[in-house]
Design a protein around this nucleic acid. Structure first.
Length: 776
DNA sequence: TCACTATGCTCG
DNA sequence: GTACGAGCATAGTGAA
């Protein structure tokens, strides 16, 4: 009944039905699932979607499914004898009829290969609307297997029935001797799990409210330090009422435990714990395991790394979320106002979950050979990022105020002009209103469409302007200024920390699927630079008085990585010669002497170089270069003809993704690419581009992370005052006292250049100045 | 009031 | 349909 291909959801790894599909043939499926070929159908039918992420999914997991098949044989027999199933959850699930014979992509596949008339293409969607699919299936006549057991799914998400942790095992630490006992066990074991509670989400702006500790599974303590409400828990008014954090004599032992690097610390998002403790004057040392990072390293893409999600997925535990504790939005109660016993239950539970998840991810990291990446890059980076966030960066407030006023004036003027040309007043920021003005009232040609109507984006306006219309140019100008004002000039001063007078971004370590960092609240990785007017904003980022900024960029790191991986002779030679790579590329592509490369040729070669990294096709390249598609195609062909090693390498990554399901960076970081075997052309294409780009982008991320770790180590070891403030993917920004500048410049360059040995040299350019603008 | 989507724009 | 990876602002919509 089965055809040649089957869709898997990375069995055994949990999974997300929307993303992690993987198409394999039947023999492969049998091997991958660890199920005899004749049982593959039953297996797939039985497990359906067991992922906890899937709305409505209640799981018979893969292991249980295999066990049931081995025990009973085929799926019909399992259902007939459901009462004999010993696993309680599986039995109830089977008996209730909502068993795991459900609509899943596996079933879509099975049905696809049944000898019936069915519009398969219409059903093969990546985020199946389950209700719609259910209806479609039930209305159609096909194999009894599906018709009999498919049932409509509940509209709302249901979590697995979790055994709620007994609250009695989570206790507040209200006695000095109890605290001493916990500390003693932690020391005896050599490690423990912790979870801090802060007054705000941001660990830097908020204060430490309390600390949860766990030493063994199923039992944890919470030490309240600065809660304003004792709640129903009677703590005899000792530790609860506004104690200065960790200053009491009985807390000195705890401090030394936290600061003892020899005692391992386990947690979820240790960077936040580190920062909250630091605000309380405690230097957390001995970071040993961060389950958020563990989850990220095991599978950086398309999965949740939040503690609640991880506990649900891997421990089958339903945790109390902070949202449940405090409410949300307008009605949210500050944590400091929440009853201590409730905070205790929540925080202690989180410490307990982190402790239990450690074992799970340790095993997975070992299984996938990711321990080194975890131990030598991601975990050490936590302290570096914490230090960066802690330090923050200063902005020149009067500068921003003046710029804001100026932009407001400009905006006003352009707005008046736009309204005059349009013949009426309207909200320029509203796409629908703008569409009406441009394409209906003024009758300009709609050049491109979005889902909801004609596009009005910058490329369209650019083209319309080129056709001689006045309004598009004004609109582009308005948009640019509006963006600068709204996203940067007005927004950044509001994020200055009241206490430090600096801006403290968050560097997120578990967001980007390639291994890159991201920055948020505010995002300091997308401060304008490409336009002259935008770049002015960087004048407002300043070092502390008397100090300087030092900026250090990797030159063309991604292209160098491409040269390294591909080993392409011409490419490697070009880099080793140490000259301008885009110029060299141009010379090779067009077969001319380097000296004869025109600026236009160089610019085009640069574009083609980037096009390669991103897997850009002729269509987009033509658009970008403003040339016919056929010409762009010729460029690309020429490029790969002259750099055959590059073509070969890119193909090899696609093959790797198809065969192994993932691709790897230079330090073994994986990215799973289930889209690569999708039957949908554009999804598959996307998978192929991701497969070729991820190793390049991800390796660059690995390398700069290593450099950051080593630089930070040196700064600390040599007790320098200079600090790393920002990372922008291939660039580091430092704040330096003048006396350290010369030294630091060579130190940073040295460590960045030699962070990871490649087949081609790495180059770093540095710049200094008294604003970010000047560091170029 | 809030969550959510769509659109558009900033960066490497 | 058509370039990888991110975060954020505004408008608009529908439900509580």
């Amino acid at each position: 009944m089965l055809g040649e291909h089957i869709c898997l959801l990375n069995p055994g790894r949990g999974g997300n039905a929307g993303v992690e599909e993987e198409w394999v043939d039947e023999r492969n499926a049998s091997q991958r699932l660890g199920v005899a070929p004749e049982y593959v159908t039953d297996y797939l039918a039985l497990i359906g979607d067991s992922s906890d992420n899937v709305p409505g999914a209640r799981g018979i997991g893969p292991k249980t499914a295999i066990g049931l098949i081995e025990q009973f044989g085929h799926v019909e027999d399992i259902l007939a004898r459901a009462g004999e199933v010993t696993n309680k959850r599986a039995r109830e699930s089977l008996q209730s009829g909502e068993a795991e014979i459900r609509l899943s992509k596996e079933l879509v596949t099975i049905i696809a290969d049944m000898p019936i008339e069915l519009d398969i293409e219409a059903l093969r969607v990546h985020e199946p609307d389950r209700e719609q699919l259910t209806k479609a299936f039930l209305e159609l006549e096909f194999g009894s297997l599906v018709r009999e057991y498919a049932t409509p799914l509940p509209p709302t998400a249901t979590a697995p029935a979790a055994a709620a942790p007994v609250s009695a095992t989570y206790q507040a630490l209200d006695q000095a001797d109890a605290l001493a006992e916990v500390i003693a066990s932690a020391r005896a074991q050599g490690w423990f799990a912790l979870r801090t509670v802060g007054s705000t989400t941001s660990p830097i702006s908020g204060e430490l409210l309390g600390l949860a500790l766990a030493v063994a599974p199923g039992r944890a303590w919470y030490l309240p330090l600065a809660h304003r409400r004792p709640g129903v828990l009677d703590l005899d008014g000792v530790q609860v009422r506004n104690l200065p954090p960790l200053t009491g004599p009985e807390l000195q032992e705890l401090r030394s435990l936290l600061e003892d690097a020899a005692v391992g610390k386990v947690g979820h998002d240790l960077k936040a714990d580190l920062l909250r403790l630091r605000r309380a004057g405690v230097q957390l040392k001995g970071l040993d395991f961060d389950v958020m990072l563990g989850s990220y390293v095991v599978d950086p893409g398309g999965r949740e790394h939040g503690l609640d999600a991880l506990a649900l997925q891997h421990l089958n535990q339903r945790t109390t979320t902070v949202e449940e504790l405090c409410g949300k939005g307008r009605d949210a109660v500050p944590l400091a106002e929440c009853a201590v016993d409730r905070v205790t239950a929540c925080a202690a539970m989180h410490a307990d979950m982190a402790l239990q998840l450690r074992a799970h991810f340790l095993e997975e990291l070992q299984q996938y050979e990711l321990v080194k990446l975890f131990r030598e890059i991601e975990l050490p980076l936590v302290e570096v990022l914490a230090e960066m966030e802690w330090t923050g960066i200063a902005i020149d407030e009067p500068f921003f105020a003046a710029a804001g006023a100026r932009l407001a004036r400009d905006l006003q003027l352009i707005q008046e002009e736009i309204w005059k040309v349009a013949g009426e007043r309207f909200n320029i920021g509203s796409t629908p209103q703008l569409r009406y003005i441009l394409f209906e009232k003024l009758g300009l040609p709609a050049l491109r469409k979005t889902k909801t109507g004609p596009s009005t984006d910058a490329t369209v306006l650019e083209e319309l302007a080129a056709q001689g219309h006045e309004l598009p140019r004004l609109l582009m100008e308005w948009r640019q200024i509006d963006k600068l004002k709204g996203t940067y000039v007005d927004a950044l001063p509001l994020l200055i920390d009241r206490r430090t007078r600096r801006i403290h971004t968050s560097f997120n370590q578990t967001v980007a699927a390639t291994g890159r960092l991201s920055s948020s609240d505010p995002n300091l990785q997308n401060i304008p630079i490409r336009t002259a007017q935008g770049a002015e904003i960087r004048r407002g980022f300043v070092p502390r008085p008397g100090w300087l900024f030092l900026g250090a960029d990797y030159s063309q790191i991604e292209l160098r990585i491409l040269a390294h991986f591909s080993g392409d002779e011409a490419f490697v030679t070009a880099f080793r010669s140490g000259h301008d790579i885009h110029r060299q590329t141009a010379a090779v592509i067009w077969g001319v002497e380097v000296a004869d490369v025109t600026p236009r040729m160089r610019a085009d070669a640069k574009t083609v170089n980037f096009a390669t990294i991103y897997g850009q096709g002729p269509f987009a390249l033509a658009q970008q270069l403003g040339i016919p598609q056929a010409e762009a195609r010729a460029f690309i062909d020429q490029y790969f003809e002259r750099f055959p090693g590059v073509r070969k390498y890119l193909d090899s990554q696609v093959e790797m993704a198809r065969g192994c399901g993932y691709v790897e960076t230079i330090s073994g970081r994986r990215r799973y690419i289930p889209e690569i075997n999708s039957r949908n052309y554009s999804i598959r294409q996307f998978g192929e581009r991701a497969a070729t780009n991820a190793p390049v982008q991800g390796s660059a991320a690995d390398i700069i992370k290593l450099a950051m770790i080593r630089i930070h180590e040196r700064l600390m070891a040599e007790q320098r005052e200079a600090r790393l403030l920002l990372q922008v993917h291939d660039e580091l920004l430092f704040e330096v006292p003048p006396a350290e500048l010369a030294d630091l410049q060579s130190l940073v360059t040295e460590l960045m250049v030699h962070a990871f040995p490649l087949a081609v040299p790495l180059e770093v350019t540095v710049g200094t100045g008294s604003s970010w603008y000047e560091c170029k």
